[in-house]
């Protein structure tokens, strides 16, 4: 079973994403901000990260940059999932090492399509 770390400061979003991804046979861990996500990755590097952009303490983009410098941090497939839905943010995220990008609002079809595209399903 593949593991996915869901990083979002909204408990509701984490719950919805968990439900969708568990339905796709992922084992889920959660983090409420980028710093907590770093700590989670230090303990166990996930196969995938579903990542919000705007969060307290450490943003998603700062987490991503940190992740890619960590030992084994090149391995997780990172899919942004954010309300930042303009080309500038998308370009910045892909430039920082994101593999895919979901613009909120999302649904299970979009999550499934994006995770398929990056070879997670």
């Amino acid at each position: 079973m593949k593991t996915c770390l869901v990083v979002d400061d909204s408990k509701v979003i984490r719950m919805v994403a968990r439900r969708i991804l568990e339905g796709l046979n992922f084992s889920i861990a959660e983090a409420a901000d980028g710093q907590k996500a770093v700590e989670a990755c230090e303990k166990q590097m996930p196969d995938a990260v579903l990542l919000d952009w705007n969060m307290p303490v450490m943003s998603g983009i700062d987490f991503l940059r940190k992740l890619r410098t960590m030992r084994g941090g090149e391995r997780p497939v990172v899919v942004f999932c954010t309300t930042e839905n303009d080309m500038a943010h998308i370009t910045e995220a892909i430039g920082a090492g994101a593999n895919e990008y979901i613009m909120k609002p999302f649904d299970s079809d979009i999550i499934q399509a994006k995770f398929s595209q990056v070879g997670l399903l």
């Binding site: 303009d86 080309m87 998308i90 892909i94 895919e100 613009m103 979009i110 399509a113």
Partner: peptide, 20 residues
């Protein structure tokens, strides 16, 4: 729509061939 470009279109293709 945003929904339509997220069903199957890789993000690199969106960046390369679409304008907002």
């Amino acid at each position: 729509t945003q929904f339509e470009v997220q069903r199957g279109l890789p993000i690199q293709m969106l960046m390369k061939y679409f304008k907002q």
